[in-house]
Design a protein around this nucleic acid. Structure first.
Lengths: 251, 251
DNA sequence: ATTCCATAATATGTCGGAGTAAATGAGAGT
DNA sequence: ACTCTCATTTACTCCGACATATTATGGAAT
């Protein structure tokens, strides 16, 4: 080993390593780290991630990888960089909060209670309307997707990852059944809210109610091609989820 | 000039140049080109943008710039790249269609009629509910933003860019007044829909109705803190816009 | 002929250095 | 006090090399 290499190793030992899971590229790992740091409030809007070179050295990665990560954050509206001034964290209303990856970063640490409330409000607006449309337009493939999701929910409780996945799939299937690409694009965001909800309920000391019957009611209304009943059933479903979450919040 | 440079110029002359407007970075311009190409259907899901090096040479840019552009597209869910296989265009339901930049690319060429309908459906779902919330939570700053937007709409017709901007600002102000970050994040998407609507109406042979009174009705209801009236007024507003657009489509 | 494993081929991923362009701030000149 | 010019800082772009991951290939064993 050359002396230069040795010195470098000594230096890098003090630097923060970026954890890159299997299959995850380096720049993706950097974007994840910076993204979670921003969403968690470690960097607040107006802060400057100054020094492309300095930052890359600190993370012990090349500038290329660091820059590609910055491009990802820029694409999601989290930061903007200009010569001389550096890379600045943008105000929150510029962030693409509905981006699936950004939502993941937001829920990586301790999620903000207020933001969870906001997502529930969005669900309360979108999902009943989506159920209404689904009841009007659904075809066999959509119904099968919902049915499969319900079957999976029967076999796994919400305390398991597969159970939560089934819950997400059910809500996603309804959004897909609207045949509206804009609504389908929201399914990732809605799914994140659904997922976190169930996780949170699991942590709660109160016994979570069995959500299956409420889901079945929505499904039945869609099968019966009854838009208003579907919307109402979904409305109940979201309200109950919100109520459960509120209880868990107070605990 | 060296001979090498001369040869290079001869080669580059045949290559497609990427148009980069003022203030736009090179990788941003590349992302714009590829993004519009994908959204316009030039590349369809499953297609492979193979050859990082080949593509970069064809566009006459360095591999770094090309790669950063690809990271942007990847961040928006348009493509995914793996070693050996290349960069593949993802299925449409993976696209972040509500991303402001993606929406811009979608409307860069001839917009898809069906997608416009979908965006109107989203507006019809979200905006009345947002107006309802705005009527409950609005404060002076929100009302001022709406009032300013209305004033700007009085002075400029929708045939001008400033007029369209005022229209966008009004709808954006209502979403901001909900104090819901998730809904605020939708304002860029809604704004794009609003903007394109007015542009489309302008092209239409039928005389566009004056939208100002309808907007004022929404504003008045919000000022009066009447949630239901605000929701209903906004409902009417979106319906009328949809109707106008439908007429223009048939023409 | 078929299956399996080692190997090679190929495209993306990562690296570090050099040079360019742009935005800011300081200083000279008015 | 103001404007303009220039120097500095920083991000932006390009380049060439190497590393890594995935697929394809070909031969050996069954």
């Amino acid at each position: 080993m050359t002396e230069a290499k040795l010195v470098k190793d000594e230096v890098t030992a003090k630097q923060t390593e970026v954890a890159r899971g299997p299959g995850r590229r380096l720049h993706g790992a950097i974007a994840h780290k910076l993204g979670t740091d921003i969403l968690s409030g470690k960097y607040v809007p107006g802060d400057i991630l100054s020094g492309e070179v300095a930052f890359a050295e600190e993370l012990n990665v090349s500038r290329s990888a660091y820059r590609e990560a910055i491009q990802v954050l820029t694409a999601k509206g989290l930061v903007a960089s200009r010569p001389k001034t550096g890379t600045r964290v943008l105000p929150r209303d510029r962030w693409n909060l509905l981006d699936p990856e950004v939502l993941g970063w937001a829920f990586a640490g301790e999620p903000d209670i207020e933001f969870v409330r906001n997502l529930f409000e969005l669900r309360a607006i979108v999902e009943p309307a989506a159920a209404r449309l689904a009841a009007q337009r659904r075809d066999k493939a959509d119904l099968k997707a919902m049915k499969d999701a319900l079957a999976a929910m029967r076999q796994h409780t919400l305390t398991t990852e597969t159970g939560r996945a089934a819950d997400r799939d059910f809500h996603s299937a309804i959004l897909h059944a609207t045949r509206n690409e804009a609504l389908i694009a929201l399914s990732a965001s809605i799914g994140a809210a659904v997922n976190w909800t169930t996780q949170f309920k699991h942590r709660s000391p109160t016994l979570p109610r069995n959500p299956l019957p409420d889901h079945v009611r929505v499904y039945d209304a869609i099968v019966a091609e009854d838009p208003e009943a579907a919307a109402e059933a979904m409305n109940v479903l979201v309200d109950l989820a919100l109520e459960d979450t509120r209880n868990a919040m107070e605990a």
